[in-house]
Design a protein around this nucleic acid. Structure first.
Lengths: 237, 237, 237, 237
DNA sequence: TATGAATGAGTCTTCATTCAT
DNA sequence: CATGAATGAAGACTCATTCAT
């Protein structure tokens, strides 16, 4: 019953597994010499940038090396030339793009030891700032870190231990004991909550560009909303 | 080599695109007559369940029909017998699993017209309750609704219009005007925030089972934390 | 060069191998009791008719048992019930449809021993008459007898030996010697020629229904043209 | 059984739908480096040749890419390397093989404006000449142009309009009015008749090689017969 | 550096056929 | 009689990877 009723519209929707025909055909930069006449390392960097963007857009598993190559104006074979295998491309991406981004985030909890509410609000703001500079960050985080089986989660743990996390947890617990943070909060969920209030709307904001109700939302709006909610919840002051 | 080789660890990790060799080998129900002698509709339902679980675990695009079949103890051809194509399987899944789940969520904003804070807290609670009954919901939402290019977002819109959303938005704006909700909140982000505070930690909780810092988190803990944060933020009361 | 220019229009044309989406969905006679309440032998006859029609339309190899079943209002399993295998269906088809048709053609050469021109003209006329009664004949002959690898040719030979052919050949040679037939004719090509002048246009006439230049051609027109050509060629009398 | 079983002979004949086990096993050029060290364009041309031959032998729909590959000494994936899809292979085939052949045929009616009988005889002769140079032409024409649902007919029309046909028709009508062609002829059937008298026997001639009655027929015999029949019919002069 | 050529493995899908009911 | 369920074998197509030049 419910089953067959859907058949009619099936053809119109993007296929479930067959890649939906590349959203932007792009000016078809043909292989050969990429735009800039720069060579060597610049080429490599360009490939990393394109890979990161596509990974964020389509997911790591769902992006082929061929798509990366085409989008960057290379032959697929060149991708292998620079990054022996698909896996190594991912390794390099983490080392050269994720690690630096992580550094940009700093350690708000350590920087604002006396004002936990400010520290948390600041973390939210920084996440949004960093995401503005690196638009691939929110979608990639949602897909490859939050999602079960995400390919980044495991690798991230290998790079960064749990030391940082433990320190943050200890700080939050201490603040709670001192009565400077709500005691109903679950310390281990605070960081996740800040991410949920910032990265999630940012990850959706590209889709929202076609949504009349939300097309005008700016990163600042998201920041203001998150900070308001984090500092005093939804109730009026 | 130039690629800043991290070869050492590469081999040990699951390949980037080649499906990681099935996380749980499962008791390898071999094809033939599935355990129960049940036939017809039960088989179909079983396939739907397995598909939903795998889609949640690995993503829709990254789950092959063969994996679904194997996990359910069928031949791949049987999946086609019950659901002509991959796309139709997804259609059926939406009709028979997503739509009912959606109904379970109800309309908290309409049910608590006089107490917006309670309405929002209640929504959080319900999301967690529903997710407990349907563990596939959080990961699937994160991957296929939040993520760019997620396959559910579009299909959901086709089923449920924007009417519900518009009503919620109107209610929030009205409450703000009446001074019953904080005016710094962005109405269009309220729902997303509740999702970010509930679905995101729930989606990660499976991974957390191996995380000594968070393995003991229960859905109730997540609910309590989310409600606390939503009702009065991180500051102590 | 020439290659890529074709890409644009590809999607619009029927796929090269994937069956072009069944031309006439038909009122979808659902399985169960076929239209007439008749049973047993009638069912079998109906399947044969449908098979013959579809074989003529799409070719034998390119018609699936499922298509035959659907078109006849049966389940695919029923086709196997009546004709154990695909091959046997074909055997039966030859025995019960082709052999009788062959009988209808008679032996014009033997019937008009004294007037070779009339015999040949009569053969043409009969081919057209028989084809009108059995519209599946021309397309099936073209596809499965003329075409290299056609599935009927071999089987026909098994049923009907070469005796008939030899007799016709002998008659023609004799007539040539007697000066009653043109000596430039190749005896072994006479029968083929008559077929080429009748069966070929008949096989195309279905397609011609959409052709403004030829939509009005009737079997009589084809007969008149063939007889004229056979009796005195294209030159005016 | 009820099916008037002809089981006895069934097993010996090639299966009806399962491709008959390759007629000519061929020297089984095994994949690897094809004989000649030729590369690139030559390989492509070789694939086109093999495809054309097999399409002519077995029909377009009934030839798998795997068969083409094997016959040419390639892996199936290579066929996709040179011609993205099955459809494109066909497009290329038309552009690079059919269009040139068409050019070889010329426009006999325009070249012999004063002698219609000669024009028609000449057309027959040319069809036979061209077919001798391109043996794939007759069988392919029979299968894919004459036959209902043939894949070439439609594509041909897209390339060549109906202009040529209309001109030929006009010429024939004019000749009839001038009393230079028999008035009983159906103008729109003249071209078809010439094809029927040439292409049909040519398409069958490969089969005839095993036919004691016709094995000695040469293209010249076919041409002489067709010309005789076209110019003055079967009656003696 | 760069790339065209080549391929093995895998993915979706179709289909003739079988079988228990 | 009839059919739903089930499957093995095949076919088109994709993709990461390799390699000779």
């Amino acid at each position: 019953m419910t089953t067959k009723s859907t058949t009619g519209t099936t053809a119109a929707r993007p296929a479930a597994r067959q890649k939906q025909s590349k959203p932007e055909p792009a000016p078809a930069r043909r292989p050969g010499r990429p735009a800039g006449s720069a060579r060597g390392p610049e080429q490599r960097a360009r490939l990393l940038d394109v890979a990161l963007t596509l990974f964020a857009q389509r997911g790591i598993l769902d992006t082929t090396l061929g798509e990366i190559a085409r989008e960057a104006g290379f032959t697929p074979a060149m991708v292998h030339y620079y990054f022996k295998t698909r896996d190594q491309l991912l390794d390099v991406l983490i080392d050269e793009r994720f690690v630096p981004l992580r550094a940009e985030l700093g350690s708000p909890f350590r920087e604002h030891p006396d004002d936990p509410v400010a520290a948390i609000a600041y973390l939210a703001q920084r996440l949004i700032d960093v995401s503005t500079r690196h638009p691939w960050f929110p979608p990639l985080w949602v897909r490859e870190v939050i999602s079960e089986g995400g390919l980044l989660k495991q690798r991230m743990h290998e790079r960064f231990g749990t030391a940082h996390q433990r320190a943050a947890l200890a700080a939050i617990r201490k603040w709670q004991r001192e009565g400077r943070l709500d005691r109903d909060l679950e310390p281990s969920l605070v960081f996740t909550s800040v991410l949920g209030l910032t990265i999630v709307p940012l990850a959706m904001s590209k889709k929202w560009r076609n949504d009349p109700l939300r097309k005008s939302l700016s990163p600042d709006d998201i920041a203001r909303h998150a900070v308001a909610l984090l500092t005093h919840g939804v109730a009026p002051r």
